[in-house]
């Protein structure tokens, strides 16, 4: 479970808040989607609660452990897939995975089993001894996914995980998400594609300009629109449109 209370973050070289008094509770056992247009603050939020960025104010609890006071312990409960898979082109895939496993203190046997399982599922098994520099974008992305699962974290966080994945890998990824939530784990992922969210999420939050403008289930999102507009038959309207209108109307309110 991940809880955020009143998080604000302004980058040093910027004059506006990338994340603005954001509070969010991400429960266990559900696939939680995080939606928003480009530059909305998704990556910033994720980096803040994964301990990669220090918030200006606010509290982060990971399984009840405060990130600010006990960062190492909190981070052990997290597995993060970064938005940019371009890292360490000079390392070999195995070296990269082993580094991550070493950092989490995973035993040799345990890491071997996990690497075997996930590299098999993603079709990377026979390139693990190759240099990451020779990987395609999607292969790097999948390697990042394997690395984030090597310690079997209770909270799995993915920033734009579907970008660059082929249908089969995307399917595998969604399967793993479902398996984990069924086992009572927390899964959180960001995207700016409504369709993905619609197909995968149990719950979602929509962020724009650093502020949450909606949280709830997809059905609740539909109902909310009906309520606001007093219109029937919104079911037929695409969620994409709903999303765009929601973002638009929130912009109308704030500016």
């Amino acid at each position: 479970m991940i809880e955020l209370f009143n998080i604000s973050k302004t980058y040093a070289k910027s004059d506006r808040k990338a994340v603005d008094s954001l509070s969010l509770k991400i429960p266990d056992g559900k696939i939680f989607g995080f939606l928003g247009p480009n530059g909305a603050g998704k990556t910033t939020t994720i980096r803040v609660f994964c301990g990669a960025l220090e918030p200006d104010s606010g509290t982060v609890l990971i399984d009840g452990i405060p990130m600010a006071e006990r960062p190492l312990e909190a981070k052990r409960h997290l597995g993060l897939v970064h938005d940019n898979p371009e890292l360490f082109n000079r390392l070999k895939a195995n070296e990269y995975l082993n580094f991550v496993a070493d950092v989490f203190g995973i035993s040799a046997e345990e890491r071997r089993l996990r690497i075997q399982e996930y590299s098999g599922r993603f079709g990377l098994a026979d390139v693990l001894s190759a240099s990451i520099g020779g990987f395609s974008r999607g292969m790097k992305q999948k390697l990042g996914v394997i690395a984030s699962l090597i310690h079997d974290p209770s909270n799995w966080v993915l920033d734009e995980p579907m970008v660059g994945l082929d249908p089969q890998s995307a399917f595998e990824l969604k399967e793993i998400m479902r398996q984990r939530t069924k086992a009572g784990r927390c899964v959180f992922f960001s995207t700016h594609v409504m369709e993905v969210a619609e197909k995968v999420c149990d719950e979602l939050a929509i962020i724009d300009k650093g502020k949450i403008i909606f949280t709830g289930t997809i059905d609740a999102l539909r109902r909310r629109r009906e309520g606001v507009e007093g219109r029937k038959g919104a079911e037929e309207e695409s969620l994409e449109r709903l999303f765009l209108e929601l973002v638009d109307s929130s912009r109308g309110e704030t500016t």
């Binding site: 070296e95 995975l97 070493d102 040799a108 071997r112 001894s129 190759a130 020779g134």
Partner: peptide, 24 residues
């Protein structure tokens, strides 16, 4: 960049590498 798929020997070495746990 060259991407070499594992041959027998390399795979075994990779296996061995993934069996060593080091301190952080």
């Amino acid at each position: 960049t060259s991407l070499t798929r594992a041959k027998k020997g390399a795979a075994r070495r990779a296996e061995k590498e993934s069996r060593t746990a080091r301190r952080p």
